[in-house]
């Protein structure tokens, strides 16, 4: 059986907020390394991979591998009943038809108990190869979100170019064009506010802004985001948590 306790409900709430617009139904795979999820969007353009590691749980017990088939819209309805600071306990049997969720406030005088019906989801898992990326950029997640939102008002797609000068996001649309260039600028006192660029080779790729704006819904998970790019391979956008991550992969646009 599974028994997993999070000190703060906000962790799972933020994870679900981050991915619910990309995927609807997905398996939460529970095993002795924690809770993992891998799912593609309907059009097979993007893939999300999430891992909440056991170290992030106040209590974690999972004797066997258990797949929790969850509709994320339904899960979000239940999670709405949890306050951010509530302790959350997830419980499921070995072959569960429901997931039990218990939310307790810090004063220990309120206990909320919910059951979420589970589904059978036949999900394909993709092997993600180890990749040496041509460029890896670490920057404030809020800044990346702002750039994607601003450019999405002008165009459907964005060109991302990483060179030794910096990383440039540019787009062209019906009303005009726009570009934002970030130069390497490490912040010694507050590293989370700085931008660092590791460059092996120059990279230039084009991506759909609709997806990037969607990924930015994970900004609440981390102050920083890591963007990894190589020519002609999917973009990797990673939000690292204290004990886990949410990673998004996005297939580039092709041809010209």
């Amino acid at each position: 059986m599974l028994e997993a306790r999070l000190e703060q409900s906000s962790v799972l709430k933020k994870v679900v907020d981050a991915i619910k617009d990309l995927v609807q139904d997905c398996n939460f795979d529970c095993n002795d390394s924690g809770i993992q999820l891998q799912a593609m969007d309907n059009s097979h353009v993007a893939l999300v991979a999430m891992h909440l590691k056991t170290e992030g749980f106040a209590l974690y017990r999972c004797d066997r591998n258990i797949a929790l088939g969850i509709n994320l819209v339904s899960l979000q309805k239940v999670l709405r009943a949890a306050q951010n600071e509530d302790v959350m306990t997830l419980k499921a049997e070995d072959s569960p038809d429901a997931l039990s969720l218990v939310f307790e406030n810090s004063e220990n005088d309120r206990i909320s108990e919910y059951d979420l019906k589970l589904m059978d989801i036949d999900q394909e898992h993709l092997g993600i190869p180890e990749t040496e990326y041509g460029a890896t950029v670490k920057m404030p997640s809020a800044e990346f979100q702002r750039i994607c939102r601003d450019l999405s008002l002008l165009s459907e797609s964005v060109a991302i170019e990483a060179t030794k000068e910096g990383i440039k996001f540019s787009c062209t649309g019906d009303i005009g064009k726009g570009a934002v260039t970030l130069r390497q600028n490490p912040n010694v006192e507050k590293p989370e506010l700085g931008t660092t660029i590791e460059l092996q080779e120059p990279v230039a790729l084009t991506f759909s802004l609709k997806y990037l704006v969607n990924f930015c819904k994970a900004s609440g998970l981390s102050n920083t985001v890591t963007i990894s790019l190589s020519n002609e391979v999917p973009l990797l956008i990673e939000y690292e948590m204290e004990h886990g991550y949410v990673r998004f992969y996005l297939a580039p646009k092709i041809g010209d």
Binding site: S43, V45, H125, G127, P234, A251, P252, K253, I254
Partner: peptide, 14 residues
């Protein structure tokens, strides 16, 4: 015009 790539052409099924 540009087309949208498919993630499954980069990552193989396990």
């Amino acid at each position: 015009a540009t087309g949208q790539g498919n993630i499954m052409s980069f990552f193989q099924k396990k």
